[in-house]
Computed example of a mutant assay.
Amino acid sequence: MPNKHAVLSASSSARWLACPPSAQLCAALPDIVTDYALEGTCAHELAEYKVQKLLGNPASNPTENLDF
């Protein structure tokens, strides 16, 4: 389920704003999926679904595929 992590992610913005080259260096490291990251991904998928439904856009309900 998890996608490739963004190079300029919000969660690491304090680091890459203070040291822009760190973003490229960290992009070369393995993207380790923790339970916290998986929970955040599930929360984002659920939030996206709810927003799309509120906007009247077609969206697939992700709840049966979420781990949290």
Rank of each mutant, 00 (worst) to 15 (best):
L38F: 02
A43E: 15
S9M: 02
S60K: 13
A59Q: 05
C42N: 15
Q52W: 05
A23I: 03
A18V: 07
P21I: 04
T41N: 12
C42A: 15
V33L: 10
D67R: 10
A18W: 03
D67W: 09
N57I: 01
C26M: 14
R15F: 10
Y49V: 03
E64A: 13
A18E: 03
S12F: 02
A18D: 05
T41E: 13
P30A: 08
S12I: 06
V7D: 09
E64V: 12
C26K: 08
V33I: 13
K50L: 13
N3M: 09
D35M: 13
S12P: 01
A27S: 11
E64Q: 15
L46H: 02
T63Y: 14
A27K: 11
A37P: 00
R15I: 14
A6H: 15
E64Y: 10
Y36R: 14
P58Y: 11
A14I: 08
H44V: 11
T41R: 02
A14R: 14
G56T: 00
Y49D: 04
S9G: 14
C42Q: 05
C42V: 05
Y36W: 10
A59I: 02
L8I: 04
L8R: 10
N57F: 03
F68Y: 15
L54W: 00
T41L: 07
S12G: 10
